[in-house]
Design a protein around this nucleic acid. Structure first.
Length: 317
DNA sequence: CATCAGGGCCCTG
DNA sequence: CAGGGCCCTGAT
């Protein structure tokens, strides 16, 4: 589906804002739903029933941020509301000022804060898409996750063409809900087929309403998210930090425990409990921010240098 | 060739 | 609250 450029405007995220570190995350598994190069980002979303292409171009600096946002689609949309949603998803109004203040001189974090200053959290996906992704991620390797995602997008997603890019837009819950479970299983997604369908039905029936969920306090939100079929503690933690911008670290999944062991103790075999204790001791309530910097540093370094001792531990590139 | 864990979660006892 | 089962793949 070929899209036309509908709007273009320059926006100003809250400073400091480091564009590349705030739109690209090397720990995310490769999926043909977005594309990045230094200073530019392309991605897709659904808005008011339309499939939309979005392009960011960095036009500013860390201390004088400016991002040109271009919207591609078939027909006009409520542009202002869309911009405000994008600002929410990319956390343009957030800032880690308190964290910078508190840990700017910390022996470990100081160099990271210097290098990544202005890195905002972000999650370009809406809740439904994000849940689909966490289901793809469960109990498998990153490679098969990428494979399953690609096959599902080819069959049920929509290929959008805009600004010279071809990127898939996720299917809507309505587009998937009536697909027979066996059709999904034929795509080798295994038992995940059942979760995809039950989640889709909950969205179609209005039992899951992202806008309403955003209004809840974090504890109630966690409780409600845990009720979603196929979504457990690990997925909930990721969702709290992603679509809901409530970064928490309340569980350490096994694959992360291996990385934390290296990161915190520079050795293998530290348990999740040990690492959690150490995180609390060092960073207290700032541990999500600290982990954000530690993890992103590892990810960007690994992408650049392919660190040998991390090759087995890091499922990302 | 068989076995098994991998960016969990559901269900049962 | 612990433990078995789940789809499929590639590593061993």
């Amino acid at each position: 589906m070929k899209l036309n450029q509908l709007y273009s405007v320059v926006m100003h995220p809250k400073a400091p804002y480091a564009f590349d570190y705030s739109v690209e995350n090397p720990t995310h598994y490769p999926a043909p739903i977005g594309d990045w190069e230094p200073g530019k980002m392309w991605f897709t979303l659904r808005w008011q029933g339309q499939k939309i292409g979005v392009r960011f171009e960095n036009k500013g600096t860390v201390d004088k941020p400016a991002v040109e946002v271009s919207i591609y689609g078939k027909k006009p949309v409520e542009f202002k509301e869309l911009l405000s949603e994008i600002a929410y998803r990319y956390e343009w109004n957030n800032s880690d000022a308190e964290f910078y203040n508190k840990f700017g001189n910390d022996s470990i974090l100081k160099p990271l804060i210097e290098k990544y200053r202005g890195m905002h959290g972000f999650c370009g996906e809406e809740l439904y898409d994000f849940i689909m992704i966490t289901i793809f991620l469960q109990n498998t390797t990153a490679k098969r996750t990428a494979q399953m995602t690609r096959v599902m997008l080819e069959k049920y997603g929509t290929l959008l063409e805009f600004d010279g890019k071809k990127l898939y837009c996720f299917w809507s819950p309505e587009e998937l809900v009536d697909v027979p479970e066996q059709d999904l299983r034929d795509l080798k997604v295994g038992y995940r087929a059942k979760s995809f369908l039950r989640v889709s039905k909950d969205f179609v029936d209005g039992h899951i309403d992202e806008v309403e969920l955003r209004k809840l306090n974090t504890d109630d939100l966690r409780t409600d998210l845990l009720k979603i079929y196929g979504i457990g503690p690990a997925s909930v933690m990721y969702a709290l930090g992603g679509p809901f911008k409530r970064a928490v670290i309340d569980v350490i999944p096994p694959w992360e425990a291996k990385i934390y062991s290296k990161l915190l103790f520079n050795r293998d075999g530290a348990s999740a409990e040990e690492s959690m204790k150490e995180l609390d001791r060092r960073y207290g309530k700032y541990k999500p921010s600290a982990i954000h910097f530690l993890f992103m540093d590892l990810a960007w370094k690994h992408r650049a240098e392919r660190m040998k001792d991390m090759e087995k531990l890091l499922p990302f590139n």
